[in-house]
């Protein structure tokens, strides 16, 4: 047992466990969806850059799962591959499919959706990471400092894509606006802490939901003003709250794929 654990009340430990699962599962699913795009992006350069971001995100997820392992919650690979859907804490935004079809066939993946989801998610992640750098739980604050360095480039990348496509052809604008609607419909649980809200906030593990939402809106306002667009509205009540284990069938299908090999023999060394 390490020194952090000694000082933790059961309530504090439960709150940090929940928050870490939310952070880990978010990046894990976001990266998984990104990895399905490999080889299929509209430009080879876009393929290389976006897969680099997916890799970094998987690295972030691995770091959070390791912090959970250090807390005795479970082994990192087991946490990533074995938990059933209603134990998962990711936002439903991160689990949504990239478009119609299975990645092994000829899927109809929507690049506009990829850009909008990635830009809005990455911007939200930046707001959270900035706040986590001040977390009362030192291991997560230290991890956040590392994530922040890489996140700078991710956010810049997706913001550039967002601005360019919003500033181009009518076809692109239409597709982007449709994607904004889809993404915002699922945005209700991105800043939610679910049932652990009070414990997470009072223990100062991260800023409050309201503060973070406000920061997110403020941070994207200049981009939207420059594009003469209205800043999107974050739904008060999520369609489903992933933080409480509520998910879509997209997650069930993803879990089958991502754990297919692991589940052949969960105790084997792979």
């Amino acid at each position: 047992m390490n020194s952090h654990e000694n000082l933790m009340s059961p309530e504090y430990k439960e709150a940090i466990k929940d928050l870490l699962l939310q952070l880990a599962d978010d990046d894990f699913m976001y990266s998984y969806r990104g990895s399905e795009w490999l080889g299929l992006a509209p430009h080879i350069e876009a393929d290389i850059a976006s897969s680099s971001i997916s890799q970094d995100s998987m690295g972030h997820a691995a770091m959070y799962y390791k912090l959970l392992e250090d807390l005795g919650v479970g082994e990192a690979n087991e946490l990533a591959h074995c938990r059933v859907a209603n134990e998962r804490k990711n936002s439903i935004l991160t689990e949504r499919v990239n478009g119609e079809g299975y990645y092994m066939d000829t899927p109809q993946y929507d690049w506009a959706y990829a850009v909008v989801r990635s830009y809005f998610y990455t911007q939200a992640k930046k707001i959270k990471i900035d706040s986590l750098c001040e977390s009362s739980y030192r291991p997560v604050a230290e991890a956040a400092v590392k994530v922040r360095m890489e996140l700078y480039y991710h956010r810049l990348h997706w913001e550039t894509w967002f601005k360019q496509l919003m500033n181009s052809t009518e076809v692109a604008k239409k597709k982007m606006n449709d994607a904004i609607t889809l993404v915002m419909d699922d945005f209700g649980d991105v800043f939610s802490y679910g049932n652990q809200k009070q414990a997470i906030e009072t223990n100062r593990l991260i800023g409050t939901e309201e503060e973070l939402k406000e920061n997110w809106k403020e941070s994207i306002t200049p981009v939207f003003l420059a594009l003469q667009m209205t800043v999107p509205f974050i739904p008060e009540k999520p369609i489903k709250n992933g933080r409480n284990g509520e998910h879509t069938k997209d997650l069930d299908e993803a879990l089958i794929t991502l754990s297919e090999v692991y589940n052949l023999d969960p105790v084997a060394v792979w």
């Binding site: 998987m58 691995a62 990192a76 990533a80 991502l258 090999v261 052949l264 792979w270």
Partner: peptide
Amino acid sequence: PKAPTLNRKLGIM
């Protein structure tokens, strides 16, 4: 997407 561990996922990506 099917790689069996976090490290294998990172490696193959």
